[in-house]
């Protein structure tokens, strides 16, 4: 049976998310391996490595917490560092939340658990792109986030068992910023968004020396503020 273009179903939406996330995995997989390797190097075992990857499921904060444990820092220092690194997700939560208002609380809770830089960036890019076929948002997010989750767990275990399998010379880590660079482009839709991006990037660069990746959330907040000012100014000028 040939199917004419129809309204998106849960199935096609999950698939669209899973397909869109594929290139992003190039940057995520090595990161997952590193999370596994780091756990071993810090003196932790497979259960703890998997515990970090399933319960916390947040790469940068996992690595920071594991590293701190490895050098004998107190547990509360590792916890606070992880929490500060993950503060940026409150902004993703707010931004993504506006697209999922009609979903039941259980689905929104699952969306919260699966929230990562990658799942957020991919989903927002797709939801805002009017040139591509529409998707059922929660299912699309589930497709992308679910694949990311699976790959994260598998690569963490591989990292523990096989060790550092990525050759030194391959700069796959650079795939991570390249992914976000590509997803950034369609979000810059007007002058306020451009101001948000420029100021957000500049302040994050200036704040890079701050501990616990604090430069990133501070930069993002500054960017949002700058974009807001530009939007207000524009309105005042053009009436």
């Amino acid at each position: 049976m040939s199917t004419p273009p129809v309204a998106p179903t849960p199935r096609t939406s999950v698939k669209a998310g899973a397909v869109d996330v594929a290139p992003v995995l190039l940057g995520v997989a090595p990161f997952g391996l590193v999370a596994g390797v780091a756990a071993v190097e810090a003196g932790l075992g497979l259960p703890e490595a998997v515990g970090f990857s399933t319960v916390l499921f947040a790469g940068a904060s996992q690595l920071a917490a594991i590293e701190l444990l490895g050098v004998g820092a107190p547990g509360w220092v590792a916890v606070m560092t992880a929490v500060v690194i993950n503060l940026r997700m409150a902004m993703y939560s707010a931004s993504l939340g506006t697209y999922l208002t009609s979903e039941r609380v259980g689905r929104r809770a699952l969306a919260a658990y699966l929230l990562t830089d990658q799942a957020y960036a991919l989903s927002i890019a797709r939801f805002q792109d009017v040139r591509r076929p529409p998707v059922q948002r929660w299912w699309y997010y589930l497709g992308a986030g679910g694949v990311l989750w699976c790959v994260w767990q598998v690569t963490t275990v591989l990292g523990v068992v096989v060790g550092d399998a990525v050759p030194e010379g391959v700069p796959l880590g650079f795939a991570v910023p390249l992914t976000f660079l590509c997803l950034l482009v369609p979000t810059v839709t007007d002058r306020p968004a451009l101001a948000a991006a420029v100021v957000g990037g500049a302040v994050a660069v200036a704040g890079e020396p701050l501990p616990a990746n604090l430069g990133m959330p501070i930069g993002a907040v500054a960017g949002v503020g700058a974009g807001y000012v530009v939007r207000r100014r524009g309105r005042a000028t053009w009436g």
Partner: peptide, 28 residues
């Protein structure tokens, strides 16, 4: 409305804040 305007600016600001330091200050 103003809150929605702020939320709409998050993607551009947050993604740029992730990308810029990785490109311009990778090792500090």
């Amino acid at each position: 409305g103003p809150v929605m305007e702020l939320l709409r600016l998050i993607p551009a600001a947050a993604l740029a804040a992730l990308v810029a330091p990785a490109l311009l200050r990778p090792e500090g």
